Simulated assay, not measured.
Amino acid sequence: MINELKSPRKWQHYPEPLVEGLSKAVSAISRTVEKPIQYAGPGEWSVFDRPQRYSTLSSSTVAVPGTHQRDRCLVIPLGFS
């Protein structure tokens, strides 16, 4: 099912309520996963920078295989342990 929903071409054949529900679920999961990153350390965004689209990051950033230009990425600073 996950592979089916990864293809925008295949989404055209699904009912609109399913597509809307999936979109809302993905957004909610993204916001939930972001919270511990946002509040890590003594203040908001004090340990990591706010996630950004891969397309806006510098060319020196190395992406995880399979990353797309539109994906939001958390940059882990070099030497972070």
Rank of each mutant, 00 (worst) to 15 (best):
M1Y: 06
M1P: 02
I2F: 08
I2A: 08
N3A: 13
N3H: 09
E4N: 06
E4D: 12
K6A: 06
R9M: 08
K10I: 06
K10H: 10
K10G: 07
K10A: 10
W11I: 08
W11F: 09
W11V: 02
W11M: 12
W11D: 08
H13I: 08
Y14L: 15
P15R: 03
E16A: 14
P17C: 10
V19Q: 03
V19A: 12
E20M: 14
L22T: 09
L22K: 10
L22S: 06
S23D: 12
K24F: 07
K24D: 13
V26I: 15
V26K: 14
S27L: 14
A28V: 11
I29N: 14
S30Y: 15
S30W: 14
R31N: 10
R31P: 00
T32D: 12
V33A: 04
V33D: 01
E34N: 08
K35G: 13
P36V: 06
Q38T: 01
Y39M: 10
A40E: 00
G41T: 00
G41I: 03
P42I: 06
P42M: 03
P42R: 10
P42H: 02
P42S: 07
G43T: 10
G43E: 13
E44H: 12
E44V: 12
W45S: 04
W45D: 10
S46N: 01
S46Y: 01
V47F: 00
F48Y: 07
D49S: 13
D49Q: 13
R50N: 01
R50C: 08
P51D: 09
R53C: 01
R53N: 01
Y54S: 04
T56R: 14
T56H: 09
T56Q: 13
T56D: 14
L57S: 12
L57M: 14
S60A: 15
S60D: 15
V62A: 00
A63L: 05
V64G: 01
P65I: 03
G66L: 05
T67E: 03
T67L: 00
T67M: 04
R70M: 14
R70W: 14
R70C: 05
R70L: 14
D71I: 00
D71G: 02
D71E: 03
R72S: 07
C73S: 00
C73M: 10
L74P: 06
L74S: 04
I76E: 05
I76R: 07
I76A: 04
I76T: 04
P77V: 03
P77N: 08
F80R: 11
S81M: 09
S81W: 05
S81P: 04
